[in-house]
Amino acid sequence: YETDHQDYCEVCQQGGEIILCDTCPRAYHLVCLDPELEKAPEGKWSCPHCEKE
């Protein structure tokens, strides 16, 4: 399936195990989030940028 999400972390610009925001195209490593997450959230997730909106 096709997605318009970026394939690198918004914070460190590296690829790998990233989680995708359900609201925007941004993607993040769990450890690059502040506060960092230990595991990917279940269900819908909005990144810090979208949470501020």
Rank of each mutant, 00 (worst) to 15 (best):
Y1K: 13
E2N: 15
E2P: 06
T3E: 15
T3D: 11
T3N: 03
D4N: 13
D4F: 11
H5R: 14
H5S: 15
H5C: 15
D7E: 04
D7R: 06
D7W: 02
Y8H: 15
C9Y: 02
C9P: 02
E10V: 14
E10K: 14
E10Y: 14
V11H: 15
V11E: 15
C12S: 00
Q13H: 04
Q13T: 06
Q13E: 08
Q13W: 08
Q14K: 08
Q14C: 03
G16I: 06
G16E: 11
G16Q: 14
G16C: 04
E17L: 08
E17R: 06
I18A: 14
I19T: 15
L20G: 15
L20N: 12
L20E: 07
C21P: 00
C21V: 02
D22P: 13
D22Y: 12
D22T: 14
D22H: 08
T23N: 11
C24V: 00
P25A: 13
P25I: 12
P25S: 08
R26W: 06
R26Q: 14
R26D: 04
A27L: 05
Y28W: 08
Y28I: 04
Y28A: 08
L30C: 08
V31Y: 03
V31Q: 04
V31C: 04
V31E: 14
C32T: 00
C32L: 00
L33E: 03
L33M: 14
D34V: 07
D34M: 03
D34G: 06
P35S: 09
P35A: 06
E36D: 13
E36C: 09
L37P: 08
L37M: 07
E38L: 07
K39V: 06
A40T: 08
A40W: 03
A40I: 13
A40Q: 04
A40H: 08
P41N: 14
P41Y: 03
E42P: 06
G43Q: 08
G43I: 06
G43D: 11
G43T: 14
K44N: 05
W45Q: 04
S46N: 09
S46T: 11
C47M: 00
P48V: 09
H49R: 04
H49N: 13
H49P: 10
C50N: 02
E51S: 03
E51D: 07
E51V: 05
E51Y: 05
K52E: 04
K52Q: 02
K52S: 07
K52F: 05
E53C: 14
E53R: 03
